[in-house]
Amino acid sequence: MTCTPPPTARPLSGARVLATAARVLRQLSHDPRTVALMLLVPCVMIALLRYVFDAHPRTFDSVGASLLGIFPMITMFLVTSIATLRERTSGTLERLLAMPLSKADLLGGYALAFGALAVVQSALATALSVWLLDLDITGSPWLLLLVAVLDALLGTALGLFVSAFASSEFQAVQFMPAVLMPQLLLCGLFAPRDTMQPALEAVSAALPMSYAVDAMSEILTHTTPTPTFLRDILITTSFTLLTLTLTAPTLLTLTLTAPTLPRQTP
């Protein structure tokens, strides 16, 4: 199956990205329950954690900071994979790609909309943790927020990616434990990564969530951004961009089964 490239390269169009982001947010605005769940569940979880570790405030500091990075990733992963799946199955994706909308416009629009939502979600959870739950961090809460947003974008990218392989909502939801649980176990939240079995330690070094969590603990223990912190956020961002690049081709091949006709015989 071949695919003729568009006659003129369709570059990223700012106005179309904004229009797509506005549309995604408008769809969410008709679903206030989802928005409420997205924003409140992380806050409730972090509050719960605070009182689980009531006698060990130091443990709450390290686990809490890590979770501030993990929550947005999980939420955005789920929301994005379901939203993209719906776009595929409703036929709107096929319709959009037949219009002058590039795949980059569409992915950018989703990333922007969910990224904005992630900012709100992370800001709420971070503010609650730092001001009300006495999460004691050495670095700036703004850096905490920055990492949370980068993690949310990573979750969005992973969600877009797996939705290409899901043909139903059931499958899309099952990708969450398949893709995120191993990362959660290996990211250093339960045991420091350098104390793991060496093979597992090597695997964890290849998973993006490890760097997200590592960046959070750097902020926890250092007043200013360290080189390790910069490396961590660079790697997280690179993973996001790599995943988005891998996702773009799957958008077209799985929807327009045959964009062109084979060679015509007279």
Partner: peptide
């Protein structure tokens, strides 16, 4: 143009 396996002239 979204149908696969088309032969002939169209």
């Amino acid at each position: 143009g979204t149908q696969a396996k088309v032969t002939g002239t169209l």
